[in-house]
């Protein structure tokens, strides 16, 4: 009989993710949920050999990772496999698979691990992946806001020099043109900068 995890033994979890930030966020979440045995893998070298050496109960992998196909080989009968690995929980749990794929992550779970022990891990995985996506979206937005402000500042400078007006007037001018042309103020700012470059 294969060595099956008992109820008392801690579940050994491997996280395969090329994004160190995201895997740290996921590891944090799992530790908060009381899981202490977590190993993160961020590169592709000798992946299967390393996994066999670690002998995990649960493997979590991000969907942008081409190594997913490498993991699928674990299903195959091979002398290298110590314990059978199955995907997710069971055939009846299509909803949790869908939630995971939507979040951009997938899980492989060793055969024999009880569903009620796996479910909280999958829930944490999905919620942490969503949290990471939100974080990244916010970061992207902050970055683009900063870029826009820089553009507007430069355009204001151009207008102030060329038209000999003050900062507030320059800004008002940009805003009026943007409203009239139904464009973003940063787009108008970009046009002003481009025009100034051309006329240099």
């Amino acid at each position: 009989m294969p060595d099956r995890p008992s109820t008392d033994r801690p579940i050994k979890i491997v996280i395969i993710d090329e994004s160190p930030v995201r895997s740290a966020i996921l590891e944090d979440g799992l530790r908060e949920a009381g899981h202490a045995s977590i190993i993160r893998i961020s590169d592709r070298a000798n992946l299967l050999e390393r996994i066999y050496a670690i002998d995990p109960d649960v493997i979590l992998i991000d969907l942008a990772n081409p190594s997913r196909d490498v993991l699928e080989q674990m299903f195959q009968v091979s002398r290298a496999v110590k314990r059978p690995v199955g995907m997710f929980v069971d055939q009846s749990d299509a909803a949790s698979i869908e939630a995971a794929i939507d979040a951009g992550v997938s899980a492989y779970v060793v055969d024999g691990l009880r569903k009620e022990r796996v479910k909280p891990i999958l829930d944490t995985m999905v919620s942490r992946f969503h949290a990471f996506s939100r974080l990244r979206a916010e970061l992207d937005q902050a970055k683009s806001q900063l870029e826009e402000r820089k553009l507007v500042d430069r355009a204001k400078g151009v207008l102030m020099r060329q038209k000999k007006i003050g900062e507030e007037q320059a800004y008002a001018l940009l805003r009026t043109v943007a409203m009239n042309e139904k464009k973003k103020i940063s787009e108008i700012a970009q046009s002003v900068i481009t025009a100034a470059e051309l006329l240099k």
Partner: peptide, 9 residues
């Protein structure tokens, strides 16, 4: 990036 993704999606 992976056949497994294609299958699942």
């Amino acid at each position: 990036v992976s056949w497994a993704n294609i299958r699942d999606r």
